Computed example of a mutant assay.
Amino acid sequence: MLFRQLEYLVALSRERHFARAAQACYVSQPALSEAVRKLEDELGVPLVRRGRKFESLTPEGERIVLWAQRILADRDALTDEVDALRTGLSGQLCVGSVPTAATAVSLLTEPFCTEHPLASVRVLSDLRSEDMLRKIQDFEIDAGITYLRAGISEKFQVVPLYRERYVLLTGTAIGRPGARNATWAEAARLPLCLLVGTMQGRRVLDEIFEMAGARAEPEVETDSVASLFAHVRTGRWVGVVPYAWLHVFGVPRGMRVLPLVEPDHTVPMGLVTTVREPGSVMARALTELARRTDVAAVLERLPTDSLTG
Rank of each mutant, 00 (worst) to 15 (best):
P268M: 07
A285G: 06
R134C: 09
L57N: 09
S306I: 13
A143C: 07
S28Y: 02
E300D: 13
R236D: 12
A19G: 08
L195Y: 04
G171A: 14
D131N: 07
D142K: 00
A185Y: 02
Q29N: 11
A35N: 06
A185W: 01
M132P: 04
G51E: 12
L289H: 04
I145F: 06
I71H: 06
D83G: 11
T273S: 09
P263R: 05
L72E: 04
G270D: 11
L107T: 03
C94T: 14
F249G: 08
G254L: 06
R49P: 05
E186H: 05
V10I: 01
Q200K: 14
V298Q: 09
L148M: 04
L169Y: 10
E219L: 15
R75K: 13
V275H: 04
G279Y: 00
F249I: 07
R284C: 08
P263S: 08
L127K: 04
L168V: 04
V272Q: 05
V36F: 02
L124F: 12
R50C: 05
I136F: 02
V204A: 08
D264E: 14
T198G: 12
C94V: 08
F249R: 15
V281P: 13
I64F: 14
L168S: 05
S56A: 15
V248E: 12
E217R: 13
R4Q: 13
A179G: 07
L72T: 01
A73S: 09
G201K: 06
E130P: 03
L47I: 02
V45R: 12
A296R: 11
A290R: 08
D83H: 10
P263K: 06
T287A: 00
V272I: 10
D83I: 01
Y243T: 11
Y26R: 14
E207N: 10
V10F: 00
T109F: 06
D264A: 11
L228H: 07
F18V: 13
P160L: 02
V65R: 00
L118R: 15
A179R: 14
V238S: 13
L124T: 05
G44M: 07
R215K: 15
F229N: 03
V281T: 12
L161N: 06
L271I: 10
E262H: 13
L228V: 02
H247C: 02
R37P: 02
W245P: 00
K135C: 10
L78R: 14
P30A: 13
F139K: 07
D294I: 05
V267C: 08
E210H: 12
A102P: 00
T79K: 12
